[in-house]
Design a protein around this nucleic acid. Structure first.
Length: 734
DNA sequence: CGGCTACTATTTTTT
DNA sequence: ATAGTAGCCG
């Protein structure tokens, strides 16, 4: 190996990384702990395989879960190779499958233009299917049934196989609905997200010539985030790897947090069993966090039973202790975080270096309130997504119907949106007729006068609607810019007029969103490798906007712990660390505590140097006040790594808190007194840290410090100032 | 057919 | 608290 380019490729890699990059043929399992440079290893391995001529560019399949990961991998590989990665299959599972499926669609009874249904579309079709089998809507929610079906699909069980395994009456009905749902998807020339995987597996299993072709093409397969693969993805990989078994997977079982979506942690735990000759490389050196943070992460995850042994370490050094803070309620908690952010920013930290993680999206609200009031710039990642907004879905449904006239879900969505006098009854008649004749819904609607039972007004309404659609379709087939087609569609359909006529603040926002969508289309027209309506629809279907995160604009970042995976921030807050919130109560019911703990592990390992946990004694949930216990995860942190701060003030209502508080060490002399004394010996001061207070002159504030001699430090909401006051000041607790 | 009220559910979600 | 929806009434 004297080629200087290849030597250069290995420069700066540690021995384990180097081993992973240069492992030759056969299955390879890379156990990559958090922050151990797995993307680096993957991209270097891609470059190494190409430079050592083990594979040509177009003989590599590098699979990720997110578009962001795929584009990052692609561009980093390009940098290493010094040339474009065109022709290289670096993409998500779903894109790769879609690509294969489009090419072979007719073998499965689809056309190349098949529509990809997102969660919401799929759910509508499930609802339709439930109606079709006369399921009691009170007992069968589309969401629950869809999740059952999705589960079955992830396990590669079709409706017939699902039926053969049913036990309960519930499952019996699900089986009925599943059967209809399956049939309806084909009839609509549509696939849901799960189908993209399942159908590709079907394709490869049913057609040996297709399977062998792809097996020949892909000399080497690389898979990112292997711990998140489900059974269908596992089978897909097995089929593609074929006899050659040149499959390198990278993952960390400790970061498997998508079990609820069908990810099967056994895929990584059992890799050695499935690929007996597998070589294993462990990446345990962490380049991200302080040793304190890593030790905390190691200690927490050690409470899980099933896991692969690993021990993260770093050369970075000890770093600061992990802070744990208790506040009176979620508002005080938010103000505490705000206060810390302001303090840090004063010290010269960039807001972009700070992230706040929480378990559920709803928790961002309180935090946003205080950030807005304090005028701290921030961004929230996740939550309701751009492409999930009703107006965007409507606009996309118009375009989808133009491309796929069989798609009744899109048809149903827009038929009366804007209002054009097509009601539920008329719509059902048309859909029923389409089903009876086995014709595309478009055809039937275009000939509405031939639909039995349809009123005169309805026939006219359909006529007008389909005239416009026909016109738009002609425009669409011209192959012009998508942006133009979209604008014309919004105009001619009356959708924009409808919104404009509303003259509300909300409608204005919707119009702006649509303008943004036109902007997206314009950008697509200008830059897409492959243009056209079909390609645009596919991009929107498969490319979420989770990639909309910005790094360096001085914004504090707020997101769920799930969204935090793969990211890193110098300063991290994990809020809402209470039993029932995190770990979430549902996880306790469902016995998925270990997954919650892995989520905690993910959260901890995002932090580079500064990590703070917080929890509230009191929190209102769904409008009801609750008193929660601190999260068990906090008690799994080694005492010597924790700065328990003010925890000693906790014994407000007896046993539980007092017991825990005394178990936590702290440098404070008060803590020593509290721990040594009886639990009931609450401090005699009238204010405690985190208390919400109302001062006669300064207004609302939060207690940020309590000092001996009856001195209280209060940060006031009005101007963010922090003042030292005597506890006899004209002030009361709220 | 469309609008209104009443009820309900309310985790996480790469695609 | 709240948003989304189902069912009812004009």
């Amino acid at each position: 190996m004297s080629d200087p380019r290849i030597e250069g490729l290995l420069d700066g890699l540690n021995p384990a990384q180097r081993e992973a990059v240069t492992w030759g043929d056969g299955p390879l399992l890379i156990l990559a702990g958090a922050g151990s440079g797995k993307t680096r290893v993957l991209t270097h391995r891609i470059a190494w395989l190409i430079q050592t001529e083990r594979a040509r560019r177009d003989e590599l399949l590098a699979i990720t879960f997110t578009n962001k990961a795929a584009s990052e991998m692609r561009s980093r590989a390009e940098m290493l190779l010094g040339h474009s990665a065109r022709g290289m299959w670096v993409m998500t599972f779903h894109s790769a499958c879609t690509r294969m499926l489009r090419a072979e669609a007719t073998r499965l009874g689809y056309t190349r233009q098949f529509t990809i249904y997102d969660q919401a579309d799929a759910r509508r079709l499930v609802k339709h299917s439930l109606d079709a089998v006369d399921a009691d809507p009170k007992r069968f929610s589309p969401a629950a049934v869809h999740s059952q079906i999705s589960d079955a699909k992830n396990r590669l069980r079709n409706a017939a196989e699902y039926r053969s395994m049913v036990g309960s009456y519930f499952e019996q009905t699900v089986a009925d609905a599943y059967e209809v749902y399956e049939r309806e998807l084909v009839r609509n020339n549509a696939m849901d997200f799960d189908d993209l995987l399942v159908r590709t597996v079907n394709l490869l299993e049913l057609f040996p010539e297709v399977r062998e072709r792809y097996q020949r093409v892909f000399r080497h397969i690389l898979v990112d985030e292997y711990q998140d693969t489900n059974h269908a993805q596992y089978m897909l990989l097995r089929l593609l790897a074929g006899e050659r078994r040149n499959i390198a997977v990278v993952g960390d079982d400790a970061q498997s947090i998508y079990g609820f979506r069908g990810a099967d942690i056994r895929n990584i735990l059992d890799f050695e069993r499935d690929f007996k000759e597998a070589h294993i490389v462990r990446l345990e050196q962490n380049y991200r966090s302080t040793q304190t943070i890593l030790s905390a992460a190691n200690a927490v995850i050690a409470h899980n039973r099933d896991q692969m042994p690993k021990d993260l370490w770093t050369e970075v050094g000890e770093g600061d202790p992990i802070k744990v803070r208790v506040l009176a309620d979620e508002h005080a908690e938010a103000r505490y975080v705000l206060g810390e952010i302001e303090r840090l920013v004063d010290e010269g930290v960039s807001r972009a270096e700070i992230a706040v993680f929480y378990r559920t999206n709803a928790q961002s609200r309180v935090l946003e309130d205080v950030l807005v009031r304090a005028e701290v710039p921030y961004q929230v990642i996740g939550g309701t997504k751009f492409y999930e907004r009703a107006e965007i879905k409507d606009a996309m449904a118009y375009l989808t119907l133009l491309a796929n006239p069989q798609d009744q879900v899109s048809f149903t969505r827009i038929a009366n949106s804007p209002r054009r006098g097509i009601g539920q009854t008329s719509l059902s008649r048309v859909l029923a007729q389409a089903a009876t004749l086995g014709q595309p819904v478009w055809e039937v609607a275009a000939g509405a006068e031939r639909v039995p039972g349809l009123g005169k007004a309805a026939v006219t309404a359909f006529g007008r609607f389909m005239d416009v659609m026909g016109e738009l379709r002609a425009l669409a087939s011209g192959g012009g810019p998508v942006a133009e087609l979209l604008e014309t569609t919004l105009r001619r359909s009356g959708y924009l007029d409808w919104l404009e006529a509303e003259r509300t603040f909300e409608a204005q926002g919707r119009i702006e969103n649509l303008e943004e969508l036109v902007g997206v289309a314009r950008e697509f027209d200008a830059s897409a490798e492959q243009g056209g309506l079909d390609a645009f629809l596919e991009q929107v279907a498969l490319v979420s906007d989770a990639d909309a995160r910005v790094d360096d604009q001085g914004l504090v970042t707020l997101m769920t712990l799930h969204n935090a995976k793969g990211l890193e921030y110098p300063i991290v807050f994990i809020i809402g660390c209470e039993e029932g919130i995190f770990p979430h109560s549902r996880s306790l019911d469902e016995g998925s505590l270990e997954e919650e703990r892995r989520l905690c592990y993910v959260g901890i390992t995002r932090a580079m140097r500064d990590l703070t946990f917080s929890y509230a004694r009191r929190r209102s949930l769904f409008g009801v006040e609750h008193y929660g216990l601190r999260s068990r995860f906090l008690d799994e942190l080694p005492v010597e790594l924790v700065d328990a701060g003010d925890e000693f003030v906790a014994p407000a209502f007896g046993g539980a808190f007092a017991g825990r508080a005394s178990a936590v060490s702290s440098g404070s002399s008060w803590a020593a007194a509290s721990a040594g004394g009886s639990a009931a010996a609450a401090p005699s001061v009238s204010y405690r840290l985190g208390d919400d207070v109302l001062h006669a002159a300064f207004g609302e504030g939060v207690v940020t410090g309590v000092e001996p001699g009856g001195i209280v430090v209060v940060r006031f909401a009005r101007d963010g100032s922090e003042r030292k006051l005597l506890d006899s000041a004209p002030m009361e607790r709220q």
